[in-house]
Design a protein around this nucleic acid. Sequence first.
RNA 1: GCCGCCUUAGCUCAGUCGGUCAGAGCGGCUCACUCGUAAUGAGCAGGUCCGGGGUUCGACUCCCCGAGGCGGCUCCA
Length: 665
Amino acid sequence: MSEIRVQIRHDEGEARARNVTEGTTAADVLGGDRSVIAARVDGTLRDLSHPVQDGNLVEPVLASSEDGLAIIRHSCAHVMAQAVQELFPSARLGIGPPIKDGFYYDFDVDRPFAPEDLVRIEERMRAIVQTRQLFARREVSDEQAREELATEPYKLELIGLKGATASHDDMMSVEVGADTLTIYDNIDPANGQVAWKDLCRGPHLPSTRHIPAFKLMRSAAAYWRGSEKNPQLQRIYGTAWESKGSLANYLHLLAEAEKRDHRKIGKDLELFHFDPTAPGMPYWLPKGLRVLNNLLAFWREEHEERGYQEISTPLVNNKRLWEISGHWDHYRDNMFIIDNDDEEPSYALKPMNCPSAMIVFNLKTRSYRDLPLRLSDCDPLHRNERSGTLHGLLRVQKLQQDDAHIFITPDQIHEEFQRIFDIADRFYKIFDLDYKFRLGTRPESYIGDAETWESAEATLLSILDARTGGDYEVENGGGAFYGPKIDILMSDALGRPWQMGTIQLDFQLPRRFGCVYTDEHGQRQTPVVIHRVIYGALERFLGIYIEHTAGAFPLWLAPVQVSIIPVAPEYVEYAHKVADALHHAKVSVELDARNETLGMRVRVAQQQKVPLMLVLGAREAQSGTVSVRRRGERTLTTMDLGLFVDRVASAVRARVDVELPPDAG
RNA sequence: GCCGCCUUAGCUCAGUCGGUCAGAGCGGCUCACUCGUAAUGAGCAGGUCCGGGGUUCGACUCCCCGAGGCGGCUCCA
């Protein structure tokens, strides 16, 4: 046999050359380390059984690496599909890719899976893992694949889409790439028989015994190839890890994340309520509204400083307005329409503020000297969402955006965008939130001409490139119907992404509403409008922020900033004096003089996430001091009442944490 | 909108394979204790078992319809 020469590299270190005989596999080259479950050959992930070629650079893929976990999860998806088809012979296969923290597989089945089915499937999977089936890769022609998969209509459809899918849909391309089709056989080592097989690009684990830990999570319906027009398949989600410890750790993290759920915290802290009579439309309770008002007060200060002028406009408009704006044709399904049988025309609750801003712009003749004209509008909006899409505060039907419409000349676009990005930076830094950008381009349903759209998209692209150095996503077709947009995304406690702020470029609405300004040559011009929100919807922002902080708001935002706990009834009088002093200094106080033990009342304040607690007894009453306990800390500080009031009040005003003297006992 | 699951006291949840089983803890109220930094003790009150139909001698329990919620899909701030 002839010799070939390969390079082997471990841990990003120096590559070392080695001579091996032809036909040597990646596994042979990399040695018998059990934590190596695949190979990267010249940068491409391969099975360990892949024969290396002369000149290849071969690197190990560890089970615990990101690629390794994806392979474990992908192989686990196969095991699940095999179990499902063994238990439900009529089940037909959809696709089964690895995803963040796990995998799923879609099936066309006679009836949806019940929770008990998942238990049975999981048991069968454990049995399959026990048998140590081998994953064997085999290249097949299109014809051969069609023949072997004749009973799998969805796989046949994928074969027909081969090549076209790779660029369009990552999930589909897991099954078929652009090149030769491959089938993975699961071989039972006991008898050498093929126990199961699936059309798949791979790579896969050497055998099922390399799946150390997995768990099925839930089942749900999902449209075939992600389109509502297609039939629904039944999807089972699972998770898989390189060790039992990692699985346990992941499940623990999930449980912890659930405790941060803003819906639970909102109830515990009495922030808001959803009533069955108003789905998706929050009742703001006193404490929740206080937080919301604090957010808005901060927002107003910052925006007035930056030249924004706030307006408020009608909640209900005649449908004529929505016809002019295009909402009637492009957004009607999401609008609450008030239809009086005997009266023409209809009215609708506003789902967006933009048309009203156009009307305000048109109230005067405008000069280029008036631009940029920044009109903000935080009115409540109503959007009639499809049922099944609501989600606590994160997806509501009544919302308030920190909205603004900025009328500018075309050559002011770039600078105005920079100003908006600066505001976003300032806000998100204060709240310590992570975010990323996403560009949304022209959707299927749009107004205006393609050329204008393309130039607007190009403008946004160049701004984004300059701002982020290319660190952003592009969502084709993700724009608003009137223009392309840059969205700002954040994640909830479970890592699910949500669209928060958005900055949208609009050449269409000003034209539709006949907005004009006079330029420096006395010519009438149509302004460009930027629609922008920083918080996004206040409801969603607060929901995300609750999950981010687990309800432990910073001092300036907290609904109750100081909780006062007198040690015994005879000190209640002094406690009232302290409460009054704080109240007059515009600090939000709660006095807990209930007939409960001190420990109990401290505990309640702690659970209510009150930032500061004052315990008042004989010592304090006598010396005119307060004994301060910070949320989450056990160390106490005793300080003069007047000093404490000043410190807290100024910290609240400055929206910073309060500074207390070092521990004085 | 689609699929599945869920809905019992203010909250969190037991429970009945259809028959005095409507329960617990927390919370609330009352009383006692008068308390120094994450749960003092005792007693009392509190439920249209989501709503509407149906099956049955009998329905919180089974069936159908509806509402709301949860998890996804689709759609979006």
